[in-house]
């Protein structure tokens, strides 16, 4: 199920190492390539370097050695302006949604257009009509367009995460990064968010990198699984062949109940989702 190997990689790590100023080595000589449209789940214990790995793609973290190529461009060497242009094409979703709480949902989603507009326009808050429509359409695609004019902090966690997805979509990205996107959500909502991510990734042919701790979710949604331990890639392969033993090898310990999110029956998730929409 791994995407066609013929197409050139959209994201490529070449011998990437990241050592933090305090001496902690988060990534050790990592080399990976991700082709267009692949839905990759990165698993590992906390502290294994998952978060650092995906943050190297949009350079929220700058590697200490090696190169990260995005569409053939080495992002590690970009200047400020070029980096912002590169980031415009990379959407990102966070564990705690990271919305601007006091702004409206629509404002939050429109923030995805900032890098595309001249600064004077954004400072005055003058978004082109097309961008507003794009933002509303993004909200529609995650099913919460009716909340557009509400303040972001009036929404539930699952709704906020969908706003964050809409914000990323509004960037019209080629790459989607998600850092523990469901860690703060209850099981039905978590599955709903993962289904949304997977569906949008398919529809837009997005190269998607998702950090997850839960092995059952990784198995359920991933095309390909990358396992990290202590900053090194210890597993890389299609999701089909992965078993509990694989995860035990990646984690270096036995699987525990808290490594599983728990399966939410589709009906239950849909019901919860419907309830959330009705609210």
């Amino acid at each position: 199920m791994a995407a066609a190997p013929a197409s050139p990689p959209v994201v490529a790590f070449e011998n990437v190492t990241k050592q933090f100023p305090n001496g902690h080595v988060a990534l050790r000589n990592v080399s990976l390539t991700f082709p267009r449209g692949e839905f990759v789940v990165v698993v590992g214990l906390s502290g294994a370097g998952k978060s650092t790995l995906i943050r190297c793609v949009n350079r929220l973290v700058t590697p200490t050695a090696g190169r990260v190529l995005v569409d053939g461009v080495d992002v590690t060497s970009l200047g400020d302006a070029a980096l912002r242009r590169a980031r415009a094409g990379i959407g990102m979703i966070f564990q705690n949604y990271n919305l601007v709480r006091r702004s409206s949902v629509l404002r939050n989603v429109l923030a995805g257009r900032l890098a595309y507009l001249p600064t004077w326009r954004t400072l005055l808050g003058l978004f082109p009509r097309a961008d507003v429509e794009l933002a509303l359409r993004s909200l529609e695609r995650v099913g919460i367009v009716e909340k557009a004019y509400q303040r972001a902090d009036t929404l539930s966690g699952g709704q906020q995460q969908r706003v964050a997805i809409a914000r990323a979509l509004t960037q019209r990205p080629a790459i989607l990064l998600a850092d523990e996107p469901v860690a703060s959500l209850d099981p039905p909502t978590a599955h709903q968010v993962m289904r949304d991510l997977k569906r949008l990734s398919r529809e837009e042919n997005l190269t998607t990198l998702v950090n997850l701790h839960f092995i059952d979710m990784a198995q359920e949604y991933a095309d390909r699984i990358v396992g990290l331990r202590a900053g090194e890639v210890v597993f890389d392969g299609p999701a089909e062949g992965v078993t509990e033993q694989t995860f035990e090898a990646i984690y270096g310990r036995r699987i525990r109940p808290d490594d599983l999110r728990g399966a939410a029956a589709d009906e239950a998730a849909a019901a919860a989702d419907g309830a959330a929409l009705a609210r």
Partner: peptide, 8 residues
């Protein structure tokens, strides 16, 4: 589409 909020 959602209703626009009232003019502030």
């Amino acid at each position: 589409m959602p209703a626009k909020p009232p003019f502030p």
